[in-house]
Every structure is written in C-alpha cells, then in structure tokens.
C-alpha cells in the first residue's frame, strides 16, 4: 500500500519531466535539423507533446484544439511552404552568417532562459495565489458559456482580425498580378503587350509579311 501511494505521488512529476524533456528535444531538433522537411515534422511532434502538457494542466479541450490546429493545420502549412519554396531546402541556408552572430544569439537566448527560470523559481507563487479558492472545472458547458455568452464580443473581434488577415494575405498574393498590369501600355488607351515578340519566325509567308510590315512601320 505504501508503495502504491509512493508511486502515485511521483507519477505526475515523472510524467511531467519526461514530457517536458521530449518537448525540449523536439523543439531543438525542429530548429537545428539539417533537413527542413524533417524539421517541420519534428515541430508537429513537439506540438503533440505540448498537448500532453495541456492534459497534465487539466485543459483537455485546449489539448484537443492544439492537436487539431498546431499538429494538423500549422504543420501542414509549414510543409506546404517548404514544398512551394524549393529554395528553402537549400542546405547552405543552415550555415551561419558569422560565428559571432550565432554565439550572440545563443548567449541572449541562454540569458533569457536563465533569468526567467530563476524568476519562476524565486517568485512566491504560492503566496500570491489563494490555494483554497482554486476551483478548476473541465465542464465544457461552463467554458462555452464563458467564451460565447460573457466574452462573445471578443470572439467576434478575433474573428474579424482573422478575416482581415486572410483578406490581406490574398491581396498580397494578387499584388504581383497588379504589378504586371503596368506592362499594359499604349498611347490612346489600353494596349496589351504582345506575347509573341520573342517567338521564333516561322516559315509561313503571311507571318513573314506581317513582320516586314511591322519593320517598315
């Protein structure tokens, strides 16, 4: 019986440490693996293990959403980006511009990690929160009420932001086509630039006559 209690008491910390170590290793691999396609897959796996952290934090709905959006959607988007941009797979991009830049980046990141980690350990979290009042409910009805009834306006605003960003994305993609319109020129109005300017002359006599007429003009 004592062994069972002991096992139950250490089960959650051991589970957390295991999942956290896997998350950190996968995040490092997502940043440092030479093949960017594998890096995208490692990012997807990392997002799945972050969902496991959310389960440990008693947020199963958020964990499900994390898997649906991050593991499913965002990883697929990153892989699409890799496939659409073949230059992204160039291994020379993984070389650092200068060793000093890498060392500086590593130093700043390590400094941020150490200082914020120290803050996390030193700050008196237990005193700042009243443990007696903690009531966490996993009831999805309550969560839906909180989200849609009490804070529905913010959800609408977020939806508006998302629609704006999507419209902006489409506009950015179409911008190049708008720039190509500048090639349409003409003295008296719109005259499309002929596409056959650089075409090889054919043996057809009519085409040759037309070319000679254009030359005379």
């Amino acid at each position: 019986m004592q062994y069972t209690d002991w096992f139950l008491s250490i089960f959650e910390p051991v589970e957390f440490l295991l999942v956290a170590a896997i998350v950190l290793v996968l995040a490092y691999l997502a940043l440092e693996h030479k093949e960017i396609v594998y890096a995208a897959f490692f990012f997807g796996f990392m997002a799945s293990f972050v969902a496991a952290i959310f389960l440990l934090l008693e947020a199963p709905f958020v964990a499900g959403m994390q898997i649906a959006v991050y593991t499913g959607g965002i990883t697929a988007l990153i892989i699409f980006a890799v496939l659409l941009l073949p230059r992204a797979q160039d291994s020379s991009l993984e070389l650092f511009a200068t060793p000093r830049k890498r060392q500086l980046g590593f130093l700043i990141a390590a400094l941020v990690m150490i200082l914020s980690g120290l803050l996390a350990f030193i700050f008196p979290w237990a005193e700042s929160f009243d443990d007696a009042v903690v009531t966490i409910s996993n009831n999805l009805n309550d969560l839906a009420m909180w989200l849609w009834s009490y804070n529905g306006v913010y959800v609408q605003l977020i939806a508006l932001i998302m629609v704006t960003s999507m419209v902006g994305a489409v506009a950015l993609l179409k911008m190049d086509k708008a720039e190509q319109l500048s090639e349409i020129r003409g003295e008296f109005g719109i005259e499309a630039k002929p596409d056959f300017e650089e075409a090889e002359p054919s043996s057809n006599e009519e085409v040759a006559d037309e070319d000679s007429e254009e030359g005379d003009d």
């Binding site: 956290a20 950190l24 995040a27 952290i53």
Partner: peptide, 8 residues
C-alpha cells in the same frame, strides 16, 4: 518549461 521554449 515555458521560458525554456520561449528562449529556444
């Protein structure tokens, strides 16, 4: 863990 991920 969160700060380590932010640093990475």
């Amino acid at each position: 863990l969160a700060f380590m991920l932010i640093g990475l």
